[in-house]
Design a protein around this nucleic acid. Sequence first.
DNA 1: CGCTTTGTGAACCGTCCGGTTAAGAAACTT
DNA 2: AAGTTTCTTAACCGGACGGTTCACAAAGCG
Lengths: 116, 116
Amino acid sequence: MRASDLDATFAALADPTRRAILARLAHGEASVSELAAPFAMSLPAISKHLRVLQRAGLISRGRNAQQRPCRLEAAPLRAVAEFTEHYRRFWDESFDRLDDYLRELQADEKKPRRKH
Amino acid sequence: MRASDLDATFAALADPTRRAILARLAHGEASVSELAAPFAMSLPAISKHLRVLQRAGLISRGRNAQQRPCRLEAAPLRAVAEFTEHYRRFWDESFDRLDDYLRELQADEKKPRRKH
DNA sequence: CGCTTTGTGAACCGTCCGGTTAAGAAACTT
DNA sequence: AAGTTTCTTAACCGGACGGTTCACAAAGCG
């Protein structure tokens, strides 16, 4: 994992449109038009966003007739998660008590994540 | 947590100089000159980076004579970590079995994190 | 073949970004 | 008071970013 990879990943994630696209792709593959539908934005704009996501390794693309379906590739997000783990003790005072964190995690699990 | 906060956080993290500054601050407070020392870069450039980090809420600043010491504020990183958690199952196949995840977490805990 | 659908490419535009230099502010030192 | 240290502000520059429009490529369909 080179630092420049993290650069590209963070830069890609810094845009709300691109994060929304990733959230949509968490539901499954989607075509460019499907991804573009929720946004008041031209198709070429979405195409550019997709290219940014692809160069960051956050999506991969296939071919299906005219469609070019996009699929989520989460590996770079793992690197982001590992990055934040280095700082966890600075925001979680009871970090040494793992149980607290686990309970919190399980609470999160019970919340339905309808946004995705 | 508004989306625009995540925008600012990810944008701030997209620069390697700024990530290095955060890593340095994980060791403890530091003055601007101390933070600038490792970089082949003018002081105003560092000052700008610090302003970006501050506007993202990733650092806070004090006053000590001429120095303006910087302190790490990790709260926004928690939001980043929570963001990535939504995607963990896409890189971690055994995510639905929470136990696996917890074991992995505990293994991480046993590793000393001497870097910080 | 010609038309429609789906998506990309190219050129352009205004804004933001990351850096510079030069100047100035704020606090300590002598 | 004068000078030093520390840091910020202002102006500038080149390049990247996020969007647009227009043109076109590629595949399916009448």
